[in-house]
Design a protein around this nucleic acid. Structure first.
Lengths: 351, 351
DNA sequence: TATTAGCACTCAATGAGGTAGAGTGCTAAC
DNA sequence: GTTAGCACTCTACCTCATTGAGTGCTAATA
């Protein structure tokens, strides 16, 4: 791994300068550029020597002999770990974000989508928001409704305005009293947290009490389970996918298409994003650190949001490895703050 | 418009040959190619003369003096109206589609998504499915559920497994009896088809009967209305958006991005697709026939599906003007057939 | 010993010139 | 009416030379 003290102060300054420059210009950075720009009082030759060292250590590379240097993944890694300065957002950007978030949203899913859109707008990259994984302790109520003679609607309600339902059709007439009984049973199982273990025997037991075919009972209970699973499933909100086409590193059509297709695979993205981020920390996955080959020129920055320790979701940005890391971090930080406020407003003091 | 008899038999044959060729090769088609390929017994010079005529009439154009000809929008229009031969799908493709559609789906929305995916897979273009606009006569039941002391869930169920709901929070304790009354009232309004006209006065009227604040009553009735509106709203399922990157005419990054962004604007696509298609007919919008400027190199083929005369949705394909029109038509035809069967299975004999 | 000026060298990018080939339009002959 | 033939046009492609940014190395300097 990166040996923290491998680089003296001067090398760090030069590396930072190279990376900052490259992030902005997308062009390999030469020694003269650094000498001129940065007031180090050093000549370009000295910087050339340092750059040769940095290259040997693997922090930067040369596209070809007579070009400047570009950061390697290792270089970016050192940058985000040690060099990057994160300033807070400019006042006008904060205002812009606040304005966009202003509208009161009562459905939590729409809130996530909105947050995602704002992030991609502000950063210019692709944004990703993964909803928190809600535990079933969050479920408030289960209801079975008779829609007509031959169909029953299962409704499961959780905190935060989340409602899932499933309609079941059968060819048995179900009596109201029986349905009420089943309703009770389902809620009981829920309290028990054991609804996941519903099996045929349980249904047979119930059947003794209420005069309904075991299949119908089973179908109903399975639907309840399905709704609960839906609540427990995380949703993913990706926005600004086509933004990556704005960056010169993806001007190759074939590569661009590959990446767009990848970003459209929600499961893959979910896998990539589900990081083991510690509370409030930012997690960086730079280029090839994302195992997947197609991601070798992309970085992902993620962090968690939500009420501490309880149900946390992930929020992040996907962009080229040459990403404005500090800008992205400060943007996410600010949006997370607003998002958390909204979540608390919506979920209130639920367990 | 196109003067139907402007073209004699030979010109038609040549035009068809040019277009078929161009659709396949994406290369301008020269006179020799036509002379060689097509057994017309004509020399290339004769065909050159005919092509000059066709160009003057506006059916084909030349990218530059020494290139072959490519069809103009007018040429494509004549092609789809008069020349195109639609054969039925190859046996193995039918099997492929049937296999993909095989899984029994109970939720109509998932059915539409699946159909959309299959179309884009089979054709290689972007597919679009717009769900039918359901009229409120289709609504089966409205239910108001008390979730806890301070929240009420509105559930509206329509045919085809469609369920919409909305959760309302308030700071009034609502009694069960009152809720039941409200429930009745909502269903009454529904039968009346006048729920759209709910206004404050109505709520005040209701308030006389049941002891609840007018705001709460109004909020509930408004939510009912909102759910009904959601049911009446069409959904759109776009798949295979990135497919257009496969075609050489969009190898220009800037143009590609423009088109991808356009395709991501669901409202615009809905507008484009909502055609005045007559029953069962296919509707072609070729290139600049789609008013929108960014669409000038794209064509849209749409048709309707669903139970005749009742609630029809739109199904279609968006691709380059150089599209395999006949292949697309036969694919859509076949998928529509399967889709209709499923719809009848799901909706049964509802009104 | 650290720094730097100077210089030879490398390589991508750019542009000019030249060629090949696909295709056309026109003319004259069939 | 059809077509062979030919001059012409234009793009695509190749090659070659030039430019300029940037490097590494060496020798001189502080």
């Amino acid at each position: 791994m990166v040996w923290e003290n491998e680089l003296n102060e001067r090398k760090r300054t030069i590396l930072k300068s190279i990376i900052d420059n490259y992030i902005e210009s997308a062009q390999p950075v030469g020694s003269r550029t650094i000498a001129r720009k940065h007031e180090l009082g050093l000549g370009s030759a000295t910087i050339r020597n340092e750059m040769a060292d940095l290259e040997e250590l693997g922090y930067i590379t040369q596209p070809h002999t007579s070009a400047g240097r570009i950061p390697s993944d290792k270089g970016y890694r050192f940058y985000v770990d040690n060099l990057m300065q994160v300033q807070s957002l400019a006042q006008d950007e904060m205002i812009r974000i606040r304005k966009a978030m202003d509208e009161r949203i009562e459905e939590i899913n729409r809130l996530f989508r909105k947050a995602s859109i704002i992030i991609s707008n502000i950063t210019g990259y692709t944004s990703v928001v993964v909803s928190p994984q809600l535990s079933r302790t969050r479920i408030k109520s289960i209801q079975l409704l008779k829609i007509d003679e031959k169909s029953i609607l299962v409704v499961v309600v959780a905190g935060g305005g989340i409602v899932k339902n499933k309609l079941i059709s059968h060819n048995q007439v179900v009596e109201d009293a029986h349905l009420a009984k089943l309703n009770q049973a389902a809620n009981l199982f829920l309290a028990d947290k054991s609804i996941g273990q519903l099996t045929m025997p349980v249904a047979v037991d119930l059947q003794r009490e209420i005069n309904m075919p075991a299949e119908v009972i089973l179908a109903i209970l399975e639907s309840v389970d399905e709704c609960i699973k839906k609540i427990e499933t995380t949703d993913i909100y990706l926005e600004g996918i086509t933004n990556i086409l704005n960056y010169p590193e993806f001007s190759d059509l074939i590569k661009a298409r590959e990446i767009l297709d990848l970003l459209n695979e929600e499961e893959i993205i979910t896998g990539l994003v589900r990081s083991v981020t510690k509370d409030k920390q930012f997690d960086f996955k730079i280029g090839s650190e994302n195992q997947i080959d197609e991601m070798k020129d992309l970085s992902i920055i993620t962090t968690v949001y939500g009420r501490e320790g309880k149900d946390v979701g992930t929020i992040g940005v996907i962009g080229p490895t040459r990403m404005a890391y500090s800008k992205v971090v400060s943007s996410i930080k600010y949006i997370r703050e607003l998002l958390n406020k909204e979540i608390i407003r919506l979920f209130g003091d639920d367990p």
